[in-house]
Design a binder for these strands. Sequence first.
DNA 1: CGGTAAGCGAGACGGTACGTCGAGTCTTAAA
DNA 2: TTTAAGACTCGACGTACCGTCTCGCTTACCG
Lengths: 206, 206, 206, 206
Amino acid sequence: MDTTVARRPGRRRDGAKDDAILLAARELLAERGFDGMTMDAVADRAGAGKATVYRRWPSKVQLTVDAVVCGGGVPMSADEVEDTGSLRGDLLSVRFGRPATNDADVMSGLISAVKENPEVAKVFHEQFVASRVRLMRELLERAQERGELRDGIDLDMVAAVAPAMISYRKMVAGMKIDDEFVVRMIDDVILPLALSRPGAAEPLSS
Amino acid sequence: MDTTVARRPGRRRDGAKDDAILLAARELLAERGFDGMTMDAVADRAGAGKATVYRRWPSKVQLTVDAVVCGGGVPMSADEVEDTGSLRGDLLSVRFGRPATNDADVMSGLISAVKENPEVAKVFHEQFVASRVRLMRELLERAQERGELRDGIDLDMVAAVAPAMISYRKMVAGMKIDDEFVVRMIDDVILPLALSRPGAAEPLSS
Amino acid sequence: MDTTVARRPGRRRDGAKDDAILLAARELLAERGFDGMTMDAVADRAGAGKATVYRRWPSKVQLTVDAVVCGGGVPMSADEVEDTGSLRGDLLSVRFGRPATNDADVMSGLISAVKENPEVAKVFHEQFVASRVRLMRELLERAQERGELRDGIDLDMVAAVAPAMISYRKMVAGMKIDDEFVVRMIDDVILPLALSRPGAAEPLSS
Amino acid sequence: MDTTVARRPGRRRDGAKDDAILLAARELLAERGFDGMTMDAVADRAGAGKATVYRRWPSKVQLTVDAVVCGGGVPMSADEVEDTGSLRGDLLSVRFGRPATNDADVMSGLISAVKENPEVAKVFHEQFVASRVRLMRELLERAQERGELRDGIDLDMVAAVAPAMISYRKMVAGMKIDDEFVVRMIDDVILPLALSRPGAAEPLSS
DNA sequence: CGGTAAGCGAGACGGTACGTCGAGTCTTAAA
DNA sequence: TTTAAGACTCGACGTACCGTCTCGCTTACCG
């Protein structure tokens, strides 16, 4: 076992630099978009040399991905979401897309990066697609155990609806995601689609 | 007699060049992606000089937008969609997103463009968001007149579901849009959401 | 004689335009140099279209040559120079380079043009080299007939000295040609070189 | 201890690149002329990127000036010219303008540059005017000490004659500078002008 | 405890695309 | 048929950015 084998000599990497670089990248991405986030600017703002940046990340897109990923405040599992007793309550407590203030600003910057590099696409997909869909699916399954859902529901499809509508609104339509929209989406789309009593928002509690 | 003020002199722009340039741009965009779509290459393939391209479009992103927009094979109005007698039939005959061979390849290039330029965003939004949502809404209204839809439906929200799911799948998830997906989306999401207890869903609530 | 044969139909060339174009060219050449004198600017200032310019002159360099040539106020022959009775007097009355105020400004613009086009070089040579050298030579011959010159003189070489020194001073050294310089050149170079009595400027009149 | 202020960090410019670029520029200038000397071509031949070229020279004309200047094979001082014992011998051993293979091809490109930029003009003047005139003057002074020169000579004017005639012949007349011309210029112009009745000229005045 | 291997900020490097601009040609409606 | 206006092709210019490489310095381990 060479877990600690003869530690290589030389100066160790400054762990704080990773954070500084990621922060600089996130800020610039949000401020100026993907193209505006030049590597020189990132290094400069992070107080680092370009070589330091490239020693840690092999390319701009990889850095971008990590910058975005590291800031993700979205719950990754239903365990992190308190059980409110109803699907509606659970969804409202999550309020997709809200927590990470500029998640979508940053996400749009990634879209082009994703196209170039399949490896990035994989990471991106996991971070921005799968995790959200998975969370959604877990919440739906929790509701299903409660008996809230109608029969014959396609959980995979339904779980994708909310993430799709949110990212579409922000990235494609360019509109902001406020509480009013989220609530309306939940009440007028997700719940009618998922629950067994179409008109009733809280069917089981009655 | 033309009331327009005595046409100013000089050679008129060659309308055919617009088409040639847009076509070249579309082809290159599909073949090589946004970054691979060099302005020199576009001009070259179109048999034009770069100056001619830049006389018509002020920047690469503007050209890209138009190139994508002009090739849109999506029907812009419900009048262009034959009335099959049912919402399901109408939707299947449209199959959003399918006709334009590689909308998404092209669209991803636009996302960054949208961020940079509000003017681009406006055009983009109209072409890629509003038109599809509008078409969807018209089809829903047609179904409503037939009495297919359930009461209290939020047409605006429902109309946005299909476009959102399709663009999300293409751009964010990076998966392709095949017939199987479209049919499943229609049957498992759109119709359950819109119709007044269609097919198998109805018996359950009785 | 077909001086008026069945006059061709259509609009006749506007003779005044030639002058306007040449004037514009000369002005721009003097103001901004050869590169700064763009054909668009020439056409614009002359109130003409570019096609009109190119119908009359086949290229920028040709126009430049003509623009320079047309303004040339240098005597082309010794006949135009009054016989003052001495070489010194003749030379002073010519004062090479002085008449056309910005001859050399314009000439320097031509140098690069000359390199590109042998045809231009021919015209240029005739206008700026041969004519001046020829004039100089004729004045020297006139002096030789008077018996002013020393024996064994190489007229061709001596005739080239003054034009060379003047253009060198203006184009290469970038200094201006004033009376003081011209007089000094005549008295300290040309006359000592040409006359039979080195120290005496008016040898024969004594 | 070095009093120089703590060298600033970063990779230093590769001095060899300057030479490579200048050489490439000189070659291209000679092969294709000023217009044919593309900056891309210079960078390419020098094995450099365009940015590297522009980091060192702010414009094409500046580079051209330096390219021409650096290659000057003309002696800058009389000390570099062996004392042959006579003015004639000294002059023949210098043979102005000959060594630099194609000074004039290169020089013509500079003329326009000189007009645009006073800073360029300054460098150009020093390199192409002052140095040659200075050298000539020193040779004349050496001759004067030997007692070769006639009295009352205007050294400044005489020193300018040869440079003027050579550049005039090359740049304006477009003729080449061969030995025959140089020898003739020396024997028929410079020496008769400078010497106190040398050879054949002396007997005539006696 | 001093050598040495690595990390560091700075910035030059090769490449390559962008967007501008000039020369010379061609096309149109009007004169 | 000529004119003014201006669009056309071609191709160079100068700028900016990416990812790499090279400096001189600093940091830490290891013999």
